[in-house]
Each structure stands twice: as structure tokens, then as C-alpha cells.
Amino acid sequence: MNPGKQLLRQDMMPHILCPGCGHGIVLNTLVRVLAKRFTSMDQVALVAGIGCSSRIVGYIDANTLHTTHGRALSFATGLKLSRPELTVIVITGDGDGLGIGGNHLIHAARRNLDLTCILFNNETYGMTGGQLAPTTVLRAFTTTTPYGNKEKSFDAAELVKAAGATFVGRGQAYRPDLLEELIDRAIAHRGFSFLDVMTDCTEYFGRKNALGGGSDLLFSQARGEEAIAQGLGEWPELRDPDGFPIRETVPMGVLHEVNRPTLEEMMGLAGYDAREE
């Protein structure tokens, strides 16, 4: 049995995720890590913004906070400062975390509070119906780029690293085994840790760009890796020269890891507890 299954709120099922969506794999991987790391979820808080990815916190039997669009990190900042003993994990999406919440993301990275932020990157706004995201690759079709995207996309990992995060990594829904290790290390890291996790939106992004179903999109992540392995470099387009879907997935793994005093440490918050009575 999946050791993470006991951490799911059965009365919240069925979930809202579409068939073929990569988010479920990341959720599954996350609860496996949580089940492994924590004997109880009493001291674990999951904070999310708005979007498909952010909905997953509601499925986990812990202290869960589903906030406003883009602003989960600000809630997490207050929560962590008031209760530094909690493990606080922020779930966000590419639109949530890089679009409307981009300012909060870079400032959270700069502050280096001991938080873990997992960004589900599916290159589109799924919940609102498949619009252009800050991560959508060039030339891709979305409901708001009917003639193809003309804007360069963000590299979330580079952005957050430049902003001062002390741990940055990138994973894929295609490789849950590697992702599990990555999430585990991110949570273990003392300071602001950030993971850019490739997932896929079949229902909107896949359909709009005729990329196939869920498995085709998962394989597109693998193809990106292979392209790198073969020395073809970055691939900021939707298809490889043979016409197969390909996902820009470079580089992978732990990309940045340094030690710097956390905000709690700078504030001298060891043993701090804002609870009354």
C-alpha cells in the first residue's frame, strides 16, 4: 500500500484534477515523503494559493490553508514567524507563483525563512481554462494566444536562485522517484527551498497544441532530458525535429544549495511561540 494514502482526506474525494493531469503524481509523491518524514501531521502546515495545484492541500490531512491568488507565501511567512516549530510547505502553480504572486516569491526567497515552496509548473492557467502563463513556451497556443505565444517564458529556478533562495531544484512528474528524493531534501533544507516541478495540463495545454494525452505529455518530459543527454541543448519549443512533443526540462536535480542564516535565526526566534495563554 502507498504509505501516503493514510494522509489523504477521504471525505474530500473525488478530487478536481482532470484525467491525465500530472498534478496527481506530484501530490502522491509529496504525501509519500510526508509519511516517511513525519509520524504525525500535527506540526505540518500546507499553504496554497489559487489554481489547480493549490487545491491539493485540501486533500492532505494536516493543517491546511487555501489562501488567495498568488499570496500563499505571505500567509506562510506570518504563520512560520508566529510558530517557528511548524514545518510549512507552500504549494503554488506557475501562474499563481510566478504571475500574480511573483513579487511575493522573490521576497520570500530573499528573506530566507525556513519554508519549502513547491511550484507545479504546467505552463498554463489550467483552472481558468488554459490561458497564457509566464512559463508558456514561445509559439505555444493557449486560449489567450490564439496566434501563438510571442513572449519569452520565465526560468523559475534561475529567478528564485537570483532572488536569494538557499535551495533550488527542479523535478518532473515523469520521474517520481527522483522527485521524492528532491522533495525530501527540500524539506530537510534549513532556509527557503524552492522546487520547480514539471507537470502537465492535458485537458487544455495538451489539447490546444495537439500534443496528445497524459502519457504523451509525460514522455515529452523524458524526451527533453534525452535531448540534453544527446547534447542538443535547451529546447524551448513544443516539438522535436521528428515532430514529437518535447518539454524543456533543463537542468534537473538540485541546482543550488548554500547555507545562510534564516530569518528566524536572525530574529532570534528559537523557542518562540505566539500562542496565547
Partner: peptide, 8 residues
């Protein structure tokens, strides 16, 4: 709001 949920 986050701090308040923590009990502050």
C-alpha cells in the same frame, strides 16, 4: 492572517 492562524 497567517500569524493569526498560528495563534497570534
Amino acid at each position: 492572517l497567517g500569524a493569526s492562524l498560528g495563534g497570534a
